[in-house]
Each structure stands twice: as structure tokens, then as C-alpha cells.
Design a protein around this nucleic acid. Structure first.
Lengths: 116, 116
DNA sequence: TTGACGTATTCCGATATGGGAATATGATGG
DNA sequence: CCATCATATTCCCATATCGGAATACGTCAA
């Protein structure tokens, strides 16, 4: 376990969804299960590309596979997104009035403006 | 514009918050502004480490700096988290009953459960 | 000025990414 | 068994990461 440069994409839901294409895949899967090729085509990526992304999503548990004869149907398992949502929940109260909360900040701004 | 290996951490709020330490910093900043050294110490990271993470957060707009004499006070700007929250919102309905939605999948599960 | 403090930057190394291309594996229907 | 379709894996490359160590920069107080 030598120095890790950046957390693996498979280490976290956070890391897994950092990649836009992966987010797109998840979004598409809300509509229902899909085979790899479908996804690849719909999202304009190569089949290997899609497979790779799906692998990551699978390892993080955001996606499940089901064998269906020749095909493998990928389905959404959104439970893994919950931790992310919960973490964000702790910030909801802040993103409307971030600055009002920073009491000192506001006063400072007022002063600064008057001083100029 | 040569091949990008992985999206820059500064390209997105998604990417910026993929790093646990960065998440910790943001969480701490909810309590109010803080100088770098404070954060570093409280989170058990080096000062340069903290500075680097703060740089990323600043570039993504999740954090604001204010000069206060010898110090630089960092404050939370949670507005940048909103896109992430909104994206996640599209999944809330799924993470409780992900499988019910996957019609075909469900039947499969029922079987599996009975087999256990 | 000088010293001391607070902070940012630079250089380094090890690591893993995502994309393209090629190829391997797998299952199906003749 | 073979050809074909569906999917996964491998190899290669350019890139950027995070961490540590050292150092540069900025500001204040005496």
C-alpha cells in the first residue's frame, strides 16, 4: 500500500460519480435495465468504454448486473448514493445564505466598502 | 488538449468533494471562518496539505478567502454544492425501492430470497 | 531592518485514471 | 463445430493526483 496518488474511483460513491459519463449512465438506468451496448450507443461512447465505467459502478455497488442470455442487463442500485445525499444534507441550510452565516465576513465587507 | 486521464479536481464540485479531506474541511467551515493553520491542525494534516486542498476548493468556488492581517480566513460558500444536490435529487425516489423499479429484476430477487 | 509568524508554492515520486485499439471471453443459433 | 453477436479485458499513453520536504512570499511588531 504505497503512496496513493488519488483515491481510486472504486473506493467511494463520491469518487465513482465524479466522472460525468458515469453520472449519465446512472441517470439513464433510472428508466430501467439496459444492456451495455445500448448504453454505449445512447451516450455516444465506445462499448469498451461503457463496460469499463460499468465495472467501476458495479464495484461501488451503484449498479447490478443480471444475465439475460446473450446479454447482461445493468440496473440501477441507487442505495449507494444515499451517503452522498446525507453528507450534502448537512449543507442545505448554508447554500442560500452562506455569507450571512459568516457573521464576521459580512461586517467586514461593509467596512471595506466604506473605506474605499 | 491532449488526452485527459481523469477530470481535474478543480473541474467540478463533484470532483472537488471526491476527496475526503476536502469534505472534512468543508464540514468544519460550517462553524465559521478559519485560518489555514487551524484547519490543518484540527484535521491532522500538514499546513501545505491544507493550503493545497483549500486552493482546490477555492478554484471550484466552494470556499472564499478573506485577508485578516497576518492571516487568511477561509469561509464556506456552499452554493457550489447545489448542483450536486440537485443531481442527487433525481435519485431519491430510487434508493429505497431501487429494485421495485427494475421490474424484471424484482422477480429475480424474489426467487433468490426464497432460495436462501 | 530583522525576526517571527502564517501561508502559498515548488519539486519530487508513486500511482491510477480514462480513452483508443485490439483482442479475449461467452453465449447462441444453426 | 462454426460464425456471430454481446461483453469484458488487456496494453499503451498522457495526464494529474496527493503527500512530503523544502522553500518562497507576505505581513506584522519591535
Amino acid at each position: 500500500m504505497a503512496a496513493m496518488a488519488r483515491a481510486a474511483t472504486t473506493s467511494d460513491a463520491f469518487n465513482a460519480i465524479a466522472e460525468p459519463q458515469r453520472r449519465d449512465i446512472l441517470a439513464l438506468l433510472r428508466a430501467g435495465e439496459r444492456p451495455v451496448t445500448d448504453l454505449a450507443q445512447e451516450l455516444g461512447m465506445s462499448q469498451p468504454g461503457a463496460s469499463k465505467h460499468l465495472r467501476v459502478l458495479r464495484e461501488v455497488g451503484l449498479v447490478r448486473v443480471r444475465e439475460a442470455g446473450k446479454q447482461r442487463l445493468y440496473g440501477l442500485d441507487a442505495r449507494g448514493l444515499r451517503p452522498v445525499h446525507e453528507w450534502l444534507g448537512g449543507f442545505e441550510r448554508y447554500w442560500n445564505e452562506s455569507f450571512d452565516r459568516l457573521d464576521t465576513y459580512v461586517q467586514d465587507l461593509k467596512q471595506t466598502r466604506q473605506e474605499d
